[in-house]
Design a protein around this nucleic acid. Structure first.
Length: 175
DNA sequence: CCCTGATTCGC
DNA sequence: GCGAATCAGG
């Protein structure tokens, strides 16, 4: 990794997605797809936190209430009904966020030319006003995506990449 | 089992 | 500051 620091574009995208309500994993995948990076969701979370997007609730155990005035009780005098920032929970607008970027070359088929068996994997949804095209690769039966995209929707790296594991410590009982 | 969120810790 | 490892919940 050359850039030890997040480019502003990445941070901007992160903030955008974050405020949009996407999950960290999705944000990470989106950013990775768009910029060709390899941020893990951990990285996204960590970055988001450091960036100040994440609400840090400082709840230390002891003495949550520093002072307890005999008469004055500050029991939430104000009730801000709605906050500017959407709560990290209770929101699922982007149910199925499409992903992109895989080792595949999308045919970028326009919607009008998209066949029934073509992988409906959106490309170009990054920028507003940009034409959205689709992967167009033959999709798996029963799925709307081609193999790589279908699996991209799921987990990454796994699948046929179970190598590089923690070795197979094999005891050679040579004698 | 899979997923995600959030924190901690070493680099 | 960065991100992997790790823990915790669904």
């Amino acid at each position: 990794m050359e850039p030890a620091h997040w480019p502003s574009e990445h941070s901007d995208a992160l903030r955008d997605y974050f405020l949009k309500g996407l999950s960290y994993a999705e944000i990470g995948r989106q950013i990775n797809a768009r910029f060709g990076t390899a941020y893990t969701r951990n990285a996204v979370v960590g970055r988001a936190k450091r960036l100040g997007l994440i609400v840090q609730v400082r709840m230390t155990s002891p003495s949550i209430v520093p002072v307890l005035p005999s008469g004055a009780c500050l029991i939430l005098p104000h009730r801000p009904a709605l906050l500017n920032l959407p709560p990290k929970s209770a929101m699922k607008p982007a149910a199925q966020v499409k992903l992109r970027c895989v080792g595949v070359q999308p045919r970028l088929v326009p919607l009008v030319e998209l066949a029934a068996e073509d992988c409906r994997y959106p490309y170009g949804g990054d920028k507003d006003g940009e034409e959205i095209t689709f992967c167009g690769h033959p999709s798996e039966p029963g799925s709307s995506y081609c193999t790589p995209h279908a699996r991209l929707t799921r987990r990454a790296g796994a699948g046929s990449a179970r190598v590089a594991g923690p070795v197979v410590l094999r005891l050679v009982s040579a004698a």
